[in-house]
Design a binder for these strands. Structure first.
Lengths: 226, 226
DNA sequence: ATAATAGTGTCTCTCAGACATTATTTA
DNA sequence: TAAATAATGTCTGAGAGACACTATTAT
């Protein structure tokens, strides 16, 4: 035991990763022996920046870099033993939907190493400690962010159709949107642009769009108050 | 030295307190011997919730409870020595403007105990380490929050005139607002209500308003994207 | 009476929201 | 040719933003 222990609670970094799989929003959760399902955690190395710890944890989990990652909140979790403290800096991440081909491939291999897996947000199992509340807060923030920023694209592969994009918005917001209004507004915003490609399938082929890398991600929200 | 030290950076809680003094926005800063001016910090007690540590720090600094307090961000600060880490959970607080009578009274007594004092945001002295950036971020968040929530009232005493309220908005947003539009919108929002009182002075006396305690603090922002 | 501050109404233009039909493909 | 999905335009109502004068008090 160390004298300073009184004031040095344990510290880790956790990542809530959202992704679309099979038309539903999923989260990445880790099965921790003896504790149940948790938001996956990682220790922070000496003189390792917090965000980098989160980012390399996300790489370990998904095999992806350069995904959207943002600090969410810092929780002082109460563990079972009295006096024991765990401070978790929680990040949330948006992981692009996999192309159909690699869906059960490279990424799941990475996950197995940490016993992490994707769970659909509808019909979620019981989580450890306060993790259900933390996750609920992350989802609220995601919904809220979707309303004033362009963050939705981070959940899609590089090229996507407007119908796919609309379905994402509907899925996260939990309501249906008018097709014409949706297209008008999303195109006016000037953050996506058409490509020369079409995607075939059942019905008329759809034009593929892509996110404009030069576009400002955050749109200035109209001030309303006052 | 303890074996776990590698993974247990030092942890504290800091509070950025904004307040209006003499027609300018001020911040509370502490002079730390050997380190210069800092955002005031407090240790977190064993099994003390983070927010409570911040809230009692704010009480120590200002003598006030029940002020607006919100978690801002968690920084891993780099100290001088290599390998040394300090993780700070930073909160920001809005402290009501003092009534003219008690301006240099009870509250400054409390501050002296911790060598903390109010500094105007215009013409700010040099701060320790990364604290200037952290403060700039807090100010951005305050501006942003002002645009979609009712948080501005937290900087005023219980009763205030519409002109005073408008000056707060102008001061924080750094732009002038139209008087008639301001009044129309703030009254339509239904979060303040007139009292029976007037405040005299030079010129026509102004009606006093107060924040409606039953009002929803956060107004739903019109979705814009898309 | 003059200086200082409080208080009040209208018009225009933009944009969100509601709404139905045609176009192109595969089976 | 039927079924499936993509693509497109207009009208209306609400509200943001621009704008100038009258009212009430102290000096």
């Amino acid at each position: 035991m160390c004298a300073a222990d009184d004031y040095l609670p344990d510290l880790d970094v956790r990542v809530i990763a959202f992704s679309l799989r099979k038309e539903h929003l999923h989260v990445l959760l880790a099965a921790v022996p003896g504790a149940g399902l948790e938001i996956p955690a990682a220790r922070v190395g000496v003189s390792q920046p917090l965000e980098e710890a989160a980012s390399s944890q996300l790489y370990r989990l998904t095999g992806l870099r350069e995904t959207y990652l943002e600090q969410l909140y810092t929780y002082g979790e109460t563990l079972g033993r009295p006096g024991a403290r765990l401070v978790s800096v929680v990040y949330f991440a948006l992981v692009p939907a996999p192309l159909a081909a690699r869906e059960n491939h490279a990424s799941s291999m990475q996950q197995d190493a940490l016993q992490a897996d994707w769970f659909p947000l509808v019909s979620l199992p019981t989580l450890a400690r306060e993790h259900a509340e933390i996750l609920a807060y992350a989802l609220r923030r995601l919904r809220y962010k979707l309303e004033y920023s362009a963050v939705g694209f981070q959940l899609l592969p590089e090229a996507f159709t407007l119908s796919e994009l609309q379905r994402i918005y509907e899925m996260i917001l939990g309501e249906t949107l008018d097709k014409r209004n949706f297209r008008r507004r999303i195109l006016q915003a000037g953050i996506i642009e058409p490509t020369a490609l079409l995607r075939g399938g059942e019905g008329r082929p759809a034009r593929l769009y892509r996110y404009r890398p030069d576009a400002v991600a955050e749109v200035k929200t109209r001030r309303l108050f006052p």
